[in-house]
């Protein structure tokens, strides 16, 4: 039992399981949206934090997931679960198709290319009226349901989203500590050395790009069922930057740190700053600067570091006392 409690995943799961009992009603939307955005941020964390590749177009993959779900459920009457699976599939396939040419670029150019892809998605969705509603978007998307059981209250959605997120965190942790995870970390620091170790750099970059787009597709599909509508303006560059920001604030190599940062940033974005929408880029910029100056390893590293600091202090005090006696 004590061993189980030392397991971080389990402690966090327990915390999330009991939190609906204590939380004020008005914070549920933040936790639900936070979980959804965290899924996309988790994918970005694998792409950016571990494999060292940036994407400023990930809002488009969230949008593809959302639109796929919206179209299939409202116009073709698919069950939500099937539309959910299709959303993951479609966002992965599109990531595969555009990833092949785009990932030949590096750094700054990769950022620009993915940014361009995000804008193309916006233009496409906002100008195709008859099928996907143009700027008005698609409404009337049903709640998420599994075999007739509908997740319609905040508490139900809380458990649904955080269960999916927990599963994806564990999946990501496993991947990071595997042969593939090492290949990604190798690529992020030294592509040349990685390739002479037998790692097919182009192939692995494409794989992680597709995987992170699949995470974004999951987030998009859940977002569509949560909001019950999709609109082109929901998936613009500010959402892409929001997700990248969450990864940097949370810490490049810390999956739970990224989740925590995403929830806090969601709370900021939707509760505190919702009337200052037009300043979002400025506010994100300030947050980014502050983090890069004061906590460049991200907030995820703070927990570890403060623990180490306390240990050092206690160790010193202990040595001091034993020297005197």
């Amino acid at each position: 039992m004590r061993y189980l409690l030392r397991n971080t995943n389990l402690r966090i799961a327990l915390f999330l399981a009991v939190i609906p009992l204590f939380l004020p009603e008005n914070l549920f939307p933040v936790l639900c949206l936070g979980a959804i955005y965290s899924i996309a941020a988790l994918g970005m964390s694998l792409l950016l934090g571990y494999a060292g590749q940036i994407s400023l177009g990930h809002a488009a993959f969230i949008g593809i997931g959302a639109y796929t779900t919206a179209i299939l459920t409202t116009q073709f009457n698919w069950p939500v679960l099937a539309a959910f699976a299709a959303a993951i599939f479609v966002s992965s396939v599109i990531a595969y198709i555009i990833g092949k040419p785009i990932l030949k670029t590096k750094g700054f150019f990769l950022a620009l290319a993915t940014l361009g892809f995000g804008e193309i998605f916006f233009v496409f969705t906002s100008r195709t009226d008859p099928v996907i509603g143009g700027l008005v978007g698609i409404g009337g998307i049903p709640y998420f349901s599994i075999a007739g059981y509908e997740f319609s209250s905040y508490v139900q959605m809380h458990y649904l989203y955080w269960t999916i997120l927990l599963g994806l965190v564990i999946y990501s942790q496993n991947m990071v500590n595997s042969r593939s995870g090492r290949a990604f970390r190798a690529i992020s620091t030294d592509e040349l050395a990685a390739s002479t170790m037998g790692i097919d750099v182009a192939k692995y970059k494409l794989r992680i790009f597709v995987l992170s787009a699949a995470y974004a597709g999951i987030a998009g599909s859940l977002l569509a069922t949560y909001l019950s509508m999709t609109q082109p303006y929901g998936f613009r560059v500010d959402l892409s930057i929001f997700i990248v920001l969450a990864v940097i604030v949370g810490g490049m190599g810390s999956l739970w740190g990224v989740v925590a940062a995403t929830v806090v940033l969601t709370w900021l974005k939707d509760e505190q700053l919702s009337q200052y929408q037009e300043y979002s880029a400025l506010i994100y910029g300030i947050i980014l600067l502050l983090i890069l100056i004061f906590v460049p390893q991200g907030l995820g590293s703070l927990g570890q570091r403060s623990f180490q600091w306390m240990k050092d202090r206690l160790g010193k005090a202990y040595r001091y006392r034993s020297n005197r006696s």
Partner: peptide, 24 residues
């Protein structure tokens, strides 16, 4: 950003099969 052991394990990359998707 890897330990000594992880560096050497990365060197053995070609001898193992688990792909990206299955490794999760």
């Amino acid at each position: 950003d890897m330990t000594v052991l992880e560096n050497v394990m990365t060197g053995g990359h070609i001898h193992w099969k688990t792909g990206v998707f299955m490794s999760g």
